[in-house]
């Protein structure tokens, strides 16, 4: 299903640690990062290029605070799809431009019958609801049942610390 994680050496991990909070805003950011950890700028770029190819880095760019862009409503839409149809359904739902994350996850019967999760963002709950209805239309009879869970409160939100997480 998934390929094993690529081998990362100590230098890669040092580089990840140095950039997990972001890139410096200098004209030559890769050289600035390199200078801080004793690598040539070219080596920083080469290692990042490799990490993009192996999926260690998803992308390089800006990450917007979607609340500040007006996307204040988010609904976790959850779908009960027959197991043999979930792969095709997931691929279709994941391709919709208003879905930011789409995963197959385990059911916990009888409390939780849903096996496909699609996070839908919108400027209002009504907008999210319309988008969820669009997913339901597209999936048609493959959907046994579905629900949307709206977030009522953020209890905690921290950036994912990716390396040295447990270190004091």
């Amino acid at each position: 299903m998934t390929t094993p994680p690529p081998a990362l050496d100590a230098t890669d991990r040092r580089l990840i640690k140095a950039t997990q909070e972001g890139l410096p805003l200098t004209r030559r950011p890769y050289h600035t990062v390199g200078a801080a950890i004793g690598l040539a700028g070219e080596e920083v770029m080469a290692r990042f290029c490799q990490m993009l190819e192996t999926g260690v880095i998803r992308r390089i760019g800006v990450v917007a605070n979607h609340y500040r862009l007006g996307y204040v409503a988010n609904g976790m839409s959850v779908w009960d799809i027959a197991d043999d149809a979930v792969a095709s359904a997931g691929t279709e739902v994941g391709a919709l431009d208003f879905v930011s994350h789409c995963y197959q996850r385990p059911r916990h019967l009888p409390l939780w019958p849903y096996n496909l999760f699609a996070m839908v963002h919108g400027r209002s709950r009504d907008e999210v609801g319309l988008k969820v209805a669009e997913i339901a239309r597209q999936l048609g009879p493959r959907v046994c049942q579905y629900d949307v869970l709206y977030s009522s409160r953020i209890l905690k939100k921290t950036g994912l610390r990716l390396v040295d997480q447990g270190a004091p």
Partner: peptide, 13 residues
């Protein structure tokens, strides 16, 4: 913006 730079995939680390 919440950040600028590489977006790492935790699972691939």
């Amino acid at each position: 913006l919440t950040r600028f730079g590489p977006m790492f995939n935790a699972d691939r680390l």
